[in-house]
């Protein structure tokens, strides 16, 4: 069985080096690029994201990442967002009073966590969703988070024949979405590429799902 091909979308955000190396270790054939054709055709597209919601959205639009993601999802082709790469999948984000439109793949807003100490930085436990594929074998592990904002509710009603999304939650000041698995679209608020062996396993689980997608 050949290695699944994954494009890590290169649009100038944060440390993407680790995401590339972690995916390679998990068994993927990885290309770091913003090339539309390659991003469209890969078995999986990984969208990293670090920094401010508005900055990530502008950078994403600058490489037409919004269209790439839309088109892939329209064809049922897997996409995974990490950290702010997860946050921008929602309708909008509110940071320091600035309300920015997101990609709108999921309804709802990304808002500041109601915690005394922010950023939420470090290794936290996760209440994993039913039927999760990503957390298979690592349900009880801690994962590495670093963020101040998150989606704190889920309002998408999924009608049959579409399967119910698998929602995983974590807590810091309040409950928030740690991961969502919704058909071809998955996302984690934490950084699997910085979560040691557990993170590599989670990425491997995603790669395995690409083979059957």
């Amino acid at each position: 069985m050949s290695a699944p091909s994954v494009v890590v979308l290169d649009y100038g955000t944060g440390n993407v080096h680790s995401a590339v190396k972690a995916l390679e270790l998990a068994g993927a054939d990885v290309t770091l690029t913003a090339d539309r054709k390659l991003a469209q055709e890969a078995d999986g597209l990984l969208v990293p994201g670090v920094g401010a919601f508005s900055a990530v959205m502008s950078a994403l639009r600058a490489v037409r990442g919004d269209e790439i993601i839309d088109r892939r999802l329209g064809g049922g082709r897997p996409v995974m967002g990490i950290c702010v790469g997860m946050q921008v999948l929602f309708e909008h984000g509110v940071e320091r009073g600035v309300d920015t439109e997101g990609l709108g793949e999921w309804p709802g807003a990304v808002t500041e966590l109601p915690a005394e100490v922010l950023p939420h930085m470090g290794w936290n436990t996760i209440e994993t969703g039913e039927n999760s594929v990503l957390f298979n074998g690592v349900e009880d592990e801690r994962f590495y988070f670093v963020h101040s904002y998150a989606a704190q509710s889920w309002t998408l009603d999924v009608m049959p024949p579409f399967p119910e999304p698998s929602l995983s939650w974590a807590e810091h000041g309040g409950r928030f979405l740690a991961a969502v698995e919704n058909g071809p679209l998955s996302a984690t608020q934490f950084h699997p590429e910085k979560s040691g062996d557990a993170g590599i396993r989670l990425l491997k689980n995603w790669l395995d799902s690409l083979r059957s997608a």
């Binding site: 440390n15 080096h17 680790s18 190396k21 972690a22 270790l25 590495y144 670093v146 950084h191 590429e193 910085k194 979560s195 040691g196 062996d197 993170g199 590599i200």
Partner: peptide
């Protein structure tokens, strides 16, 4: 830094 980040997957 680069060599470490290629082998050690923690912050």
């Amino acid at each position: 830094v680069r060599a470490t980040a290629e082998q050690v997957f923690i912050p």
